[in-house]
Nucleic acid binder design. Sequence first.
DNA 1: GAACAGATATG
DNA 2: CATATC
DNA 3: GTTC
Length: 540
Amino acid sequence: MKVAFFVQGRDVTAKYVALATKRLEALEVDHAGTNVSAPGVTHVVASLFAREAPVGLDKDVQIVTLAWLQYVVSKQGHEPSELTAEMDWRRCKAMQRNGAPDGEGQVKSAGADFQAWVEMRLSGNTSTSADGRRIPSRYLQRCNAFVLRGKYLGLADFPPSEIPRHDAQPSKKRKRYDAHQGYACFKSGTIAVQPNLNEHLTNAFQPLVDYYEIFNDEEWRKVSFKRVIDLLRSLKFKVTSADQLRSYRGIGPKVFAMIDEALRTGYITRAKEVWKSDAAVSLRDLQRVHGIGATVARDLHKRGIRSVAELREHKELLNSVQLIGLEYLDDIEQRIPRAETGAIGKFVEDTARALWPSKALAVETCGSYRRGKSSSGDVDVILTTPDQAGCPPLADLIAELHARKFIAADLTQPKDQLPVNRQGQVARKQTYMGICKLPGYKVHRRLDVKFYPREQFPFALLYFTGNDHFNRSMRNFAKRKGWSMSDEGIFSAQRQRSERIAKASRPVDTHFRTEKDVFDWLGFPYKHPTERNCYDVTFA
DNA sequence: GAACAGATATG
DNA sequence: CATATC
DNA sequence: GTTC
Ligand SMILES: O=c1ccn([C@H]2C[C@H](O)[C@@H](COP(=O)(O)OP(=O)(O)OP(=O)(O)O)O2)c(=O)[nH]1
Ligand SMILES: [Mg+2]
């Protein structure tokens, strides 16, 4: 096996490189060491092996990062203080056997996904499956965030005990839900153009969403509060008493108490308390930059950088994506008026048609624009060719948009070859992210362009139109019926992973032409894009 | 107490 | 691989 | 944080 390794520029040390080299030689593997930190470094590293498809991981080329090197280092006993993923897992497994030493975070039994993940970690694998079992990608990433680096093992800097929480008793009675509270993607009604009658409540909850957004291991609390806001926004009446919401899915004891408090006092104590932390304010500020998430922000904060203003004095700590995010921060943060979003989409479309006059392209501006919103955070454009022929290189279109001085900066490196996915297959979609500005306009905007083969287009369009909750809802439904749905299509799930999940009741043998075909196949009434601004991801 | 969607780009 | 993002 |  060949192993390419590089170390991320921010933390690279010669020591780690030397150790890795020694380690690789001991294992008698071919290796090509490189130490690059520049846009497109993944491309460069993989190219060392002259692979047909230059990007992506497969069994011949493994990209090894700082985390792996630290793991090697600690295994050799050089720096026992460095916690590694496997050491965490030893602790976790021990807790599963013996119970947690200090009574926190016991693992008593593991479900299928969780167990598979544990076994994967213990087998030394950290991303691919051990025995053919595949861990759902999202679940894998959230487990990594929550268990390996989260509060679960008491490793976090922000102990939850510092912040007062609402005490509330769960009601003993099992809730019964009306039929209208089924899957979000099943529901009808338009929220896009509907006024928010409960601003007094959504405003009170928003700080909680913002707060939990700044931690990777608080995903589910954030999602739960977000669902509450979206639910409140979708109501056709103004809430005057918490009791009106008692029976709604997603309103549990804690949220119920908060709504009650907000109606009585005008605010939620907890929403105010959490933002009294200077650290939280700093983390949130740093995460305004595209490419800076929870972990990097915390890292910067540990180095004493407390704000974007201070970050501007330490650009050497940022990678190329984050540098662009910082450079265009003030522009990107501004909402895009609907008319301009349409104009940007049209500019991309016109350029594509001029570039490929023979292709009779389908071009659609998706995202919040297609859902009818009056303003957008970015512009999402999707393209396809109507015939079965392969996609022309998206890089050519991006090059043309550069030539027309429309694109100002790249957040991804346009490539002339298709990526290889996790299963080692050549992907058929191409995706680009960058910064653009219309001629004559002042403000730069975030632009996403995607190119799909025709047979994936209905699913791609569905995905790219969203919103994200809508997608998660529909995919959750498909999953529980024994399928797996993505932006590329719907397939029978690889294996049944719990009794709650059905065996696929029928094979996927339909030809999907339009979005409506997908709704029909799933048995959902078709929903116009403007009806897809929804909140719930639960099930009936 | 498990699950809460599935995928890609970067370094 | 870990992280950020769609 | 909520659901099952
Ligand atoms: O986690 C995510 C994020 C996005 N999407 C899909 C749905 C979304 O509508 C589309 C475009 O993403 P974007 O972030 O642009 O969201 P948006 O709905 O267009 O809202 P905004 O106005 O903020 O751009 O990609 C997902 O499926 N999952
Ligand atoms: Mg968008």
